[in-house]
Design a protein around this nucleic acid. Structure first.
Lengths: 345, 345
DNA sequence: ATCAAAAAAGCAAACGTTTGCGTAAAAAAT
DNA sequence: ATTTTTTACGCAAACGTTTGCTTTTTTGAT
């Protein structure tokens, strides 16, 4: 930053005071006289002084930068999380810097290096799909840089987490399908090495079992990248089955929408022939017809919670808080892509 | 960052070299012997040395931080822009820090202050809807911090811009509607104090005029926040008109979708009774039925372009580049919400 | 061997703050 | 009036790099 910035030194010279006095005055340190403090502020104002936080960070050996690692920013879920993080961070005087892993392990590792050299005060991350081993995050433990994962978390690592109960949510969606009369329920699943998707599959299975419905592996179809296209592909496969499912629980809304479009094109009625439920409550879920029954994943709330948690840990570093896990409550949002629940006798 | 980081000094002590030698070696400065350089790198590796970029930034009087100000992160357009910015920045060794103005002027001003104290190397911004006066950005001119606006830009300020030709795009959409046979075309407009929305209105008018169609102010309806709901409100108003429009050009996709849903609920056929066109090509535009004819706003491209431009200006600061404006080409994407173009005799 | 030139490395001051400790002046207590 | 306490401020060393300049060492030419 050239452009001859005004520094504390300049103020000191002008006022015949020492730099330490100026610094203290600007922090309203009580050891500086009220009158002096007032005058320092006034002059600072006049000369257009701005503190240089880089210098301050160096001296204090800490920044107010929160590093956020997301798979992709342009996915609705993550942009909502970031929005929540930014909101809290802004209020608390922290800055947010973001990086996209693009679901690449290699890139995620590189990003952790960057975050370290940048001395971020804390980190909020959602693991890349590719990531199996989380040792690149371990360094932050040594450096005492707080770390909180959201959504896709690591179990092998001591770190705080904010998640939703995927098992429970999936099980509730499935139960809802069952309550509406579905008996052959398929599942379009996410990548099973990621715990949230594994949990969703388990929740689905649990609901079936609870209702004495058989689990048929042929009804589970894996949509690796959880895209619209993958959802369509799985749906095509499912409706060609000899014993076609009468309901599909999809691991996210994108696949659900892909599925809905395929089903409609096949001239099958939703929800009468096949009911469809998604997961996440993306904005599109109200746009698609029929509107999609889904689970609200509370993205912004997740971001806010993660940020609050992280900042608390940053500011209470000394007391060495144990890592904690917060599970957010989710809501089942029933729309038109699933039928009415039958009142049980 | 406690946790006893390894510094250049530590390396120097271990190797009986001066800190300057170490620093130069780590930068592969040719004035340091090859052998020494190799050994320094090896030891750095062994001891787990990481450069402290805060210190480096202070000494070099420049950071590699790009500040991005967006109205809201969770709007698809902006999250795509950010994604583009991040991609280029990452490749070029810059970090990205983001702030949401939430379309508030006050907040935008506060953010510029934060960016200044943080010594960002450059800024990419999209003006808040509320913003009339841009003098809070002027300081960056003095500080020689490059600034590039995207999408919503300021004309009163000397700064680079990357935009699309809203006038041209709007005029093309309108022409398309005319070509498909529409004769009473309405416009759901954005806030007219923002130039892009004013341009879209003008482009619409120009197309009408070019085709000798009358401009009827009753057919222009202002949707201030350009939300889904506002679109619905405007549509309700328009279809109640004695002389109902046979086509609607909406200033963005959200309002278009709101309009489509209202029109469908009124049992009017799209595009036969009323054709609808949007602006932006949001992901939902392929999901809604009928799929929406719209203008692709090249969001990610805009972000990449802005980032490239900014980084060039950062790195060639000395040559004092004149501010430049890049206008991105847009594409009209014809889908089912508008009819077929009639071949003119 | 002698000297100039090139190569390799060191010195020390910066960058703009913050902060522990020390000191002078003012106020309060004796 | 003297001592003690309080108040207000200054000194100087950090924080971890970078960099202009100087010094030493090596190399090559004579």
């Amino acid at each position: 930053m050239p452009g001859s910035r005004v520094t504390i030194k300049d103020l000191a010279k002008r006022m015949n005071l020492s730099v330490s006095t100026i610094s203290r005055a600007l922090h309203n340190n009580p050891s500086i006289g009220e009158k002096t403090t007032r005058e320092v502020w006034k002059l600072a104002e006049q000369l257009g002084y701005f503190p240089n936080s880089v210098a301050s960070n160096l001296r204090r050996r800490k920044t107010n930068m929160i590093g956020v690692i997301v798979p992709r920013i342009d996915i609705a879920f993550h942009s909502h999380v970031i929005s929540g993080v930014e909101e809290i961070a802004y209020k608390m005087g922290y800055n947010v810097t973001i990086y996209q892993s693009r679901d690449s392990y290699e890139r995620e590792v590189a990003i952790t290096t960057i975050l370290q050299t940048n001395m971020v005060a804390g980190i909020i991350a959602c693991l890349a799909l590719e990531t199996r081993d989380c040792s690149h995050f371990a360094r932050f433990n040594n450096l005492k840089v707080p770390l909180v994962f959201y959504d896709r978390v690591s179990n092998e690592l001591e770190a705080s987490k904010v998640i939703i109960d995927d098992f429970d949510a999936a099980s509730r969606v499935t139960q809802h399908l069952i309550n509406t009369g579905c008996r052959r329920i398929a599942h379009i699943a996410g990548c099973q090495t990621t715990s949230i998707f594994a949990d969703r599959l388990e929740g689905y299975k649990a609901a079936l079992q609870r209702n004495n419905l058989p689990f048929d592996p042929n009804l589970v179809c894996c949509a690796n990248d959880l895209s619209y296209e993958e959802g369509a592909r799985c749906a095509r496969k499912l409706i060609r089955l000899a014993a076609m499912p009468d309901g599909i629980f999809c691991a996210n809304d994108y696949t659900a929408i892909g599925a809905i479009q395929v089903i409609k094109k096949a001239n099958l009625k939703i929800p009468d022939d096949i009911a469809v439920a998604g997961f996440s409550n993306y904005p599109v879920s109200t746009i698609i017809e029929p509107a999609l029954t889904t689970i609200d994943d509370r993205a912004a709330e997740m971001g806010k919670t993660a940020a609050r948690m992280l900042i608390r840990q940053i500011e209470e570093r000394d007391v060495n808080i144990a890592s904690e896990t917060i599970v957010l409550r989710t809501d089942l949002i029933v729309r038109d892509s699933t039928g009415k629940e039958k009142v049980n006798a």
